[in-house]
Amino acid sequence: MTAHTPARPRKKKSRRGKFLIITVVVLGLLLVAADFALAAVGEYQIAQRMREKLQLDEDPSVRINGFPFTLQAIRGDYKHVQINATGVPLKNEQQGVDLRDLEIQADLRHTRVELADLLEGNVSKATIDEVDGSVKIKSLDLNRLASQVTPFEKLSIDPDNRVTTTTTTTTAPADPKAPKTTAAIRISGQTNVAGKLVSLSAYGQITLVSGAIQITIDDIELDDASLKQIIPQLRQALAITINPGTLPFGATPTEVAVEPGAFTLKGKITDVPLVQR
């Protein structure tokens, strides 16, 4: 019979490997947690400065995108910072502006500030390569403004997606990259006529003129065709100009858009300070 050599025990090697793996995983989790914690501090400091800059009653939502945050912090270059504030009021009696439910959004591209300054809240030297800013005007404000002329209820905003057939072959195609200063709209809601609640759908367009939105109504449909005599009055009531002023960071509005529930003004500005100097 041939004698067999017993296999060597591998328990110590196996345990050492498992310990190494656990250690690496734990260290990785700690580094990730530290990275998120550091990012949270940076977001808080930016939110504080943005509350002052945008004159908000509460801190806006701030998100520093990109992982790891620590690498961006070491470079002092934060590639994409998103700022969002909702329910923002805006009142300017001299210009006749009274908006109460604005949504403000800003996308900051390459915010440049040293980590030590950011953590201390000292961002006086911070600069931003480019800011995409937008202000969203919602149905609530439109309903209130329109009701100053004729009482409306439940006004809603939507794009006018009806298919148009008035196209010509001689018209040059629009540049898809060019800012859109006009957009088709559909405004629907209800109004009271002689004690009767009438539903309506108004079709027209919004146009960006000198930084303000001008609404023009071309067609109105009523659920009661016998009341067509009130259409001119409704058209006049919905012909509204809304001027929310400049966009975040002083960007000039160059584009207008319609989405379900809101109008949006958009604009871009380059090489701006994070806070007013």
Results as ranks from 00 to 15, higher is better:
residue 130 E to I: 01
residue 130 E to S: 08
residue 131 V to W: 03
residue 132 D to P: 10
residue 134 S to Q: 11
residue 134 S to D: 02
residue 135 V to D: 09
residue 135 V to A: 07
residue 136 K to S: 13
residue 137 I to K: 06
residue 137 I to N: 07
residue 137 I to R: 01
residue 138 K to V: 10
residue 138 K to Y: 10
residue 139 S to R: 05
residue 140 L to K: 10
residue 141 D to I: 06
residue 142 L to R: 10
residue 143 N to M: 09
residue 144 R to K: 02
residue 146 A to F: 00
residue 146 A to Q: 07
residue 147 S to M: 05
residue 147 S to P: 04
residue 148 Q to L: 10
residue 149 V to D: 03
residue 150 T to R: 09
residue 151 P to E: 04
residue 153 E to V: 08
residue 153 E to I: 08
residue 153 E to Y: 05
residue 153 E to C: 02
residue 154 K to M: 11
residue 155 L to S: 02
residue 157 I to G: 09
residue 157 I to M: 03
residue 158 D to G: 07
residue 160 D to Y: 00
residue 160 D to A: 10
residue 162 R to V: 00
residue 163 V to F: 08
residue 164 T to N: 03
residue 165 T to Q: 06
residue 165 T to E: 08
residue 165 T to K: 12
residue 166 T to I: 13
residue 167 T to E: 10
residue 167 T to M: 04
residue 168 T to F: 14
residue 168 T to H: 12
residue 168 T to R: 13
residue 169 T to N: 12
residue 169 T to I: 14
residue 172 A to V: 14
residue 172 A to F: 12
residue 174 A to E: 14
residue 176 P to H: 01
residue 179 P to K: 11
residue 180 K to F: 06
residue 180 K to E: 15
residue 182 T to F: 06
residue 182 T to P: 07
residue 183 A to Q: 04
residue 184 A to C: 11
residue 184 A to Q: 04
residue 186 R to P: 04
residue 187 I to W: 02
residue 187 I to M: 11
residue 188 S to P: 00
residue 189 G to M: 06
residue 189 G to R: 08
residue 190 Q to W: 01
residue 191 T to E: 07
residue 192 N to A: 03
residue 194 A to G: 08
residue 194 A to R: 07
residue 195 G to E: 11
residue 195 G to V: 05
residue 195 G to Y: 06
residue 196 K to A: 15
residue 196 K to N: 15
residue 198 V to W: 02
residue 200 L to W: 09
residue 201 S to I: 05
residue 203 Y to V: 00
residue 203 Y to F: 15
residue 204 G to S: 01
residue 205 Q to C: 13
residue 205 Q to H: 10
residue 206 I to V: 15
residue 206 I to D: 09
residue 206 I to F: 11
residue 206 I to M: 07
residue 208 L to D: 03
residue 208 L to Q: 04
residue 209 V to I: 15
residue 211 G to T: 02
residue 211 G to I: 10
residue 211 G to E: 04
residue 212 A to K: 01
residue 213 I to Y: 01
residue 214 Q to Y: 08
residue 215 I to S: 07
residue 216 T to G: 01
residue 216 T to K: 13
residue 217 I to A: 08
residue 218 D to R: 03
residue 219 D to P: 01
residue 219 D to R: 15
residue 220 I to M: 02
residue 221 E to Y: 11
residue 222 L to S: 04
residue 222 L to W: 06
residue 222 L to Y: 01
residue 222 L to R: 02
residue 224 D to T: 11
residue 224 D to R: 04
residue 224 D to H: 09
residue 224 D to A: 13
residue 225 A to S: 15
residue 225 A to H: 03
residue 226 S to K: 13
residue 227 L to T: 11
residue 228 K to Q: 14
residue 228 K to E: 15
residue 228 K to W: 03
residue 230 I to V: 14
residue 230 I to G: 04
residue 230 I to M: 14
residue 231 I to P: 05
residue 234 L to M: 12
residue 235 R to A: 15
residue 236 Q to L: 13
residue 236 Q to F: 12
residue 237 A to F: 06
residue 239 A to V: 02
residue 240 I to G: 00
residue 240 I to F: 05
residue 241 T to E: 03
residue 241 T to P: 08
